[in-house]
Simulated assay, not measured.
Amino acid sequence: MSETTQSQSTDAFVRVCSLDELPTVGVAAADISGRIVAIVRTAEGEVHAVDDTCSHANVSLSEGELDGCTLECWLHGSRFDIRTGDPSGPPATAPIAVHTVKIEGDDVYVALNQEN
């Protein structure tokens, strides 16, 4: 998933990967039209997508630890809710963008949030 994903849908959703390409529980980074996004699969099997850059230190969140629905930045320990993007632990105070995910068959599609 490290290469740029081309749009394979007529609407705002872009096919990112298949479910088999994601860790069973964990995070993988994807480049969607030049925007790096963390694709997260929880222990419950839910798939979420958030910007891959920590709002505090500008480092990759996909290299951090997943705890339930919380993604922790590996550098300074900022924590973000992957459902809302809200920081839940310092030093981050600004949220990260959350993107819409849909699963069709075995494929993961993401619609980028253009507001952030």
Rank of each mutant, 00 (worst) to 15 (best):
M1T: 14
E3R: 13
T4D: 15
T4A: 15
T5F: 05
T5S: 15
Q6E: 15
S7M: 13
Q8C: 15
Q8Y: 13
Q8I: 15
S9Y: 08
S9G: 14
T10A: 12
T10W: 05
D11V: 02
D11F: 10
A12G: 15
A12D: 15
A12H: 14
F13Q: 04
F13Y: 14
F13W: 05
V14T: 11
R15M: 09
V16P: 05
V16D: 03
S18T: 13
L19W: 05
E21M: 00
L22H: 02
L22V: 06
V27N: 01
A29V: 12
A30P: 02
A30N: 11
A30M: 04
D31G: 02
I32W: 07
I32L: 11
I32S: 03
I32D: 01
R35L: 04
R35W: 00
R35Y: 09
R35C: 00
R35P: 04
V37G: 01
V37A: 02
V37W: 03
V37S: 02
A38S: 11
A38N: 00
I39A: 00
R41Q: 05
T42A: 12
A43E: 08
E44A: 14
E44W: 09
G45Q: 03
G45I: 00
G45D: 01
G45K: 05
G45F: 08
E46A: 10
E46H: 12
V47M: 03
V47S: 02
A49F: 02
A49T: 08
V50I: 12
D51T: 06
C54L: 08
S55R: 06
S55Y: 02
H56T: 08
H56D: 07
H56A: 00
S60H: 06
E65K: 04
G68K: 08
G68N: 01
C69A: 09
T70L: 09
T70H: 12
L71H: 06
E72W: 06
W74G: 06
H76T: 01
H76L: 06
R79E: 14
F80M: 03
D81V: 08
I82H: 04
I82E: 00
R83H: 10
T84Y: 10
T84E: 04
G85A: 08
G85W: 05
G85L: 06
D86I: 09
P87G: 09
S88C: 12
S88L: 06
G89A: 11
G89H: 08
P90M: 14
A92W: 00
T93Q: 11
T93R: 13
P95G: 09
I96R: 07
I96S: 00
V98E: 01
V98A: 06
V98D: 01
T100H: 10
T100W: 05
V101K: 09
E104M: 14
E104G: 13
E104H: 10
G105V: 13
G105C: 14
D106F: 07
V108Q: 08
V108E: 03
V108W: 05
Y109W: 15
Y109S: 11
Y109N: 07
V110K: 00
V110Q: 04
A111R: 10
L112N: 03
N113K: 07
N113I: 11
Q114V: 14
Q114T: 15
E115P: 08
